[in-house]
Design a protein around this nucleic acid. Structure first.
Lengths: 131, 131
DNA sequence: CGAACCTTACCAGGCTTATGCGAAGGTTGG
DNA sequence: CCAACCTTCGCATAAGCCTGGTAAGGTTCG
């Protein structure tokens, strides 16, 4: 079976360490999508097999879940999402060190402050004091 | 209470739409970490309040989980992880999309395909044929 | 002092992820 | 033809995320 350069799902499972079930799951999640034979059989080429093995390492080395990598994939493809997140993080009020916010950061903050009307007086520069 | 520019957790909850419980959870996850009063009370400044509101929109607009944003945060801080993922994605064996993958999946990144040389002879280019 | 906050810590229920197993049916190749 | 694959679909369970409670104890302030 297979075409000489590709393996069927069970064979791929044996050589990658994933179960057949997981290979289908991984396909559903959009990571590693093998091509199909005319009859609909999944065909895993050398590239896919390598990717599957590397994926195992990735998850293990960094203690990731498949959903994490799935999200990273989404990030790569969704520029809008990426920008939204970048914007949100850019507005981060860096706490411990008294780092003065770089101008570019301030700009980002204001960009967001404009978007929503903030309730209350925007008094930056706390002097943590009470009692 | 508070110092004039900051709200305690319950007040912050009221103005941001999050529950007190969730504000603590969000802090644990590393997103939005308020400073503390001498007695240990959380003090949410205007910046934090704004961030919390924006966070709500972010999750809603893009259908994210807090864990997703948490992972994005980790990505920002962990260069090694970022590179590992970049490498993995860069090795993606792309092929004409016949029917595969979720809608947000698009193929368009081979810019740093040479970023990491994958072990093994990547023999791409089979003439899919069997029997 | 006492009400009304705050803190941490733990239990719990609901939903999602990760994974396996089995059923019903198509494909392949000896 | 038949064994051994493959396909999709769905049930089932363990673990983890999200969220709310509640308990035991400190802080604030009228």
């Amino acid at each position: 079976m297979a075409d000489g350069t590709s393996l069927t799902i069970h064979e791929a499972a044996l050589t990658t360490g994933w179960s057949s079930r997981m290979l289908r799951y991984i396909e559903d999640s959009g990571l590693v999508v093998p091509r199909r034979s005319p009859a609909g059989y999944r065909l895993f080429g050398p590239g896919e097999l390598q990717r599957l093995r590397t994926l195992r390492e990735l998850l293990e080395d960094f203690e990731l879940d498949l959903s994490d990598v799935g999200f990273a994939l989404r990030l790569r493809h969704d520029a809008e999402l990426r920008e939204a997140l970048d914007g949100w993080f850019a507005a981060e009020p860096m706490r411990p060190p008294e780092v003065a916010a770089p101008d570019w950061l301030v700009y980002e903050q204001e960009k967001h402050l404009q978007l929503l009307a903030l309730a209350g007086p925007v008094t930056v520069g706390s002097t943590g004091k009470e009692t």
